[in-house]
Design a protein around this nucleic acid. Structure first.
Lengths: 238, 238
DNA sequence: GACGGCATACCGACCAGTTGGTATGTCACT
DNA sequence: AGTGACATACCAACTGGTCGGTATGCCGTC
C-alpha cells in the first residue's frame, strides 16, 4: 500500500524542506521552485503530492504537529511525580530548546499563521490545531496541579496552557527581532515565575522587602538543572 | 521644506496603505502594485519615494513607531499617580485595544519581523527599534513601582517590559490562529495577574486555600471598567 | 511465469500572469 | 531652467500551476 520507492519519498522530503525554508523566510516568500530545489525533487513531484502551495502549507503545519507532538511526548518533563513540577519542567524544557540558529528553534505555525490568517483559512486552521492541540497536552497536568495544591482560581487550566503558548510565541518574535535567544529565555523565566507564584511556590526568586543582594547573580541558575526539592505535600484538598 | 503638493502626499498615503495591507497579508505577500493601488498612487510615485520594497518596509516600521508612539503617549494610563497603577493601566489599555477586525489591532512589526528577520536585516532592525523602543517607555514606570513598593527582585524592569511585549505579541498570534480576540484578552489577563503578584497586590483574583466559590463567575469582571480604588499613595517619584 | 492492464510516483518543459524594478516623460513651482 | 513630485510605459525574472510523458510496481489471467 505504501512502500512506493524507498525510504524518503518526495512528499516527505518536501515536507521536511518546507519546515526549514518556511521557518527561515516565511510562507509567502517561499516559492514552490525553491521548495523543490531544497527537497531535491522536481516540480512535477510537488504537484503530484499537493494540489497547490496552499495544500502544502496545510500539510506542513500538520507535519509540524506530528513532529513536535512526538518530541514533546518523548520529552523527560513527564517523569516528575508531582503535576506542578511537570508543568514547570515543561517550561524548562521549552527554554532548553532555545539553542542554535533562530530558524531551528522557532515555531513554524506561529510564523505561518501571521501571514495566512486572513488569506488562507485552511492554513490558519491547521496552525490553530497545532497550537491549541499542543496546549491541550498541558491541561491535564495544570488541572492536576491545581487539584493537588488546592488552587481555587478565576482562571482555567486551559487559559493558562494557552497563555504559556502565547508567551513562547511572543518570545520567538522578540528573539527574531533582536537576533538572539537571550531575550526569549528571559521571557520564559518570567513565565516560570508566574506559574510558581500562581501555585504558591516559594522559590528563591521574587521576594519583597528583603533586599537580597545575591539575587542578581543567580539569574539563570534556576534553570540549569533546577529541580525542586520535592512536592511540598502530596495531599489534595477539596 | 516639506509643503510639496498638498495635505496627503503620496509617501504618507503609501505608508498608511502599507500599515493596513501588510498587517492583513504580511510583508512578502504584499506587492508593490497592490500597495500603490491601495494608496491610490502610481508605481512611479512609489519608486520616487522609496528605493525599493525593502526601504518601504523600513519606513513602514518607522512610521508605525511614530503612530503607536503618539497613541501611547497620549493614552490616559499615564495619569495615575501611582507608578504600579500606571503599569497596570497600560495593560488594561492594551487589552482595551483588542477590538474590531484583527488586522486593525494586531502589530505591524511583530508580523513583519517574522518574515524578514533572516532575509532583510534593515527591516528586522526597524522592527527591533519599534518593539524595544516601546518597551523602554514602560521601564521608568516599572522601575518607579519597584522602588515605591520596595521590590527586590532577580528580574529587571527592562526584562519585565520586554516580557509584557512578548505576551502581547504572542496574544496576537493566538488571536490570529483562533480568529478572535478573546484568547488574546485572556492572555493579557494572565499578564496583569502576574504583574500584580510580582508587586504583591492582593487583588480579588488568585487566592489559595480559600475555596472561594464565586471565583469562577467574575472571570472577566476585573477588567471591564476596572479601576483600583485609587492610588495607594501619592508618593514621590524618583 | 509471461501477460496486459492499471495505478502510483515522479519528471521537466512549458505557460500565462505577476513580480520588483527602470526609463522616460510631464508639470507645477521656484 | 531647474527641481521635486509624480505618471506612464515597459521589462526581464520569477511566480504558481499545467501537462504530456516515463519508470516502476502490483494485479489477476491464461
Amino acid at each position: 500500500m505504501s512502500r512506493p520507492t524507498a525510504k524518503t519519498d518526495a512528499r516527505t522530503k518536501l515536507l521536511e524542506a518546507a519546515l526549514s525554508v518556511i521557518r527561515t523566510k516565511g510562507y509567502s516568500a517561499t516559492s514552490v521552485d525553491e521548495l523543490c530545489a531544497a527537497a531535491g525533487v522536481t516540480k512535477g513531484a510537488f504537484f503530484h503530492h499537493f494540489k497547490g502551495k496552499a495544500e502544502l502549507g496545510v500539510a506542513a503545519a500538520d507535519h509540524w504537529s506530528e513532529m513536535t507532538g512526538a518530541l514533546f511526548a518523548a520529552a523527560p518533563y513527564h517523569d516528575h511525580a508531582d503535576a506542578l513540577e511537570r508543568v514547570l519542567a515543561y517550561v524548562d524544557f521549552r527554554k532548553g530548546l532555545l539553542r542554535g540558529p533562530l530558524p531551528d528553534f522557532t515555531c513554524l505555525v506561529g510564523t505561518m499563521v501571521q501571514e495566512t490568517y486572513e488569506t488562507a483559512p485552511a492554513i490558519r486552521d491547521a496552525c490553530k490545531r497545532s497550537i491549541t492541540g499542543h496546549a491541550a497536552t498541558l491541561e491535564a497536568d495544570i488541572e492536576a496541579a491545581m487539584r493537588e495544591r488546592s488552587i481555587a482560581a478565576d482562571w482555567t487550566a486551559k487559559s493558562l496552557a494557552l497563555h504559556m503558548q502565547a508567551v513562547i510565541q511572543g518570545a520567538f518574535i522578540l528573539a527574531k527581532a533582536t537576533g538572539g535567544a537571550k531575550i526569549a529565555a528571559d521571557s520564559i523565566d518570567h513565565l516560570r515565575r508566574y506559574i510558581e507564584m500562581l501555585f504558591g511556590v516559594e522559590s528563591g526568586q521574587t521576594k519583597r522587602m528583603e533586599t537580597r543582594r545575591e539575587a542578581d547573580q543567580d539569574h539563570r541558575a534556576h534553570l540549569v538543572g533546577r529541580r525542586d526539592p520535592g512536592p511540598r505535600r502530596t495531599g489534595r484538598r477539596r
